[in-house]
Design a protein around this nucleic acid. Structure first.
Lengths: 143, 143
DNA sequence: ATTTATCTACGAAAATTTTCGTAATAAAAT
DNA sequence: ATTTTATTACGAAAATTTTCGTAGATAAAT
């Protein structure tokens, strides 16, 4: 690999890092969830989805998505007269980042304590518990 | 149990429910963490703790704690001229409530997905993994 | 061709959260 | 006794997030 390509990679990694560190607000996260589910969507579609759970004006959603575009949380393409939006941050990295912050602020950094509470308190099916056990076994093997 | 005692119990439960549903802001949560750790503390002590991680004015902390008192997130007693504060909401119920909301907003309600990510991404020790496995086994037995 | 409907841009109001300055009071120090 | 220090109360500024109204442009319907 060339030195310049190497440098470019570093820059890209830094940008990615930065982007994954932008913490979306609660409303922004709602919109990201919808975009992750739909893939691509217009403001209208997103607003329709949001309206299923709560009342929200069209221009409110529009404005939020414009702000998210400025923050590079979403990207968009011009399709004729209107815009088609897409999430510009991945679902997993974002969840990971939010999870880290959440564990820090709510469980004083202990992932274990959080997992224990989640398993104890939530209704998790037998199948899911098995899945988690499998995961643990595979992690232990890997270590 | 008498009918009136019964009624009182219901009322108390409702109050508890309500209080555990007050979602503390991020700053309020920071203060709750400190109070949970210290048990009782004055504004000065809490402010000293907060100051360890970030710069924060004394009256800022004071004001926050006054607001939290109004919201009944904390209680306080007069000790001479100053106040001694204490968390008025439990650590576990609060964590539980926040966890529920977090799973909802970030993992679309799937505790399993969150746990899988937490186990995959965080550094969790062998001992902790064992502990979690034990917990899963005991849950499975209980079912 | 005109009207109606739909979309974007954008500013600004409203709501929420955080920060801080000032005043009043009382204790402690000099 | 006076000054200094520490505390509470409180209003309001500052910062952040959410909501909405209006204007301008373009497509669709009449």
């Amino acid at each position: 690999m060339s030195a310049s390509a190497d440098k470019q990679l570093l820059i890209n990694l830094k940008i990615m890092e930065k982007q994954t560190n932008i913490k979306p607000t609660e409303s922004e996260l709602e919109i990201l969830q919808i975009l992750w589910a739909l893939g691509k969507a217009t403001v209208r579609q997103v607003n329709d989805e949001l309206s299923k759970t709560r009342e929200v004006g069209y221009t409110t959603t529009l404005k939020l998505m414009q702000i998210m575009f400025e923050k590079k949380l979403v990207s968009r393409t011009d399709e004729g007269r209107y815009h088609v939006y897409e999430a510009a941050v991945g679902e997993e990295p974002t969840q990971h980042m939010l999870l880290d912050k959440f564990i820090d602020s709510t469980f004083r950094g202990s992932a274990t304590r959080m997992v224990m509470q989640a398993l104890g308190n939530q209704q998790v099916s037998k199948e899911e518990l098995e899945e988690i056990k499998k995961l643990i076994n595979s992690i232990e093997k890997g270590q």
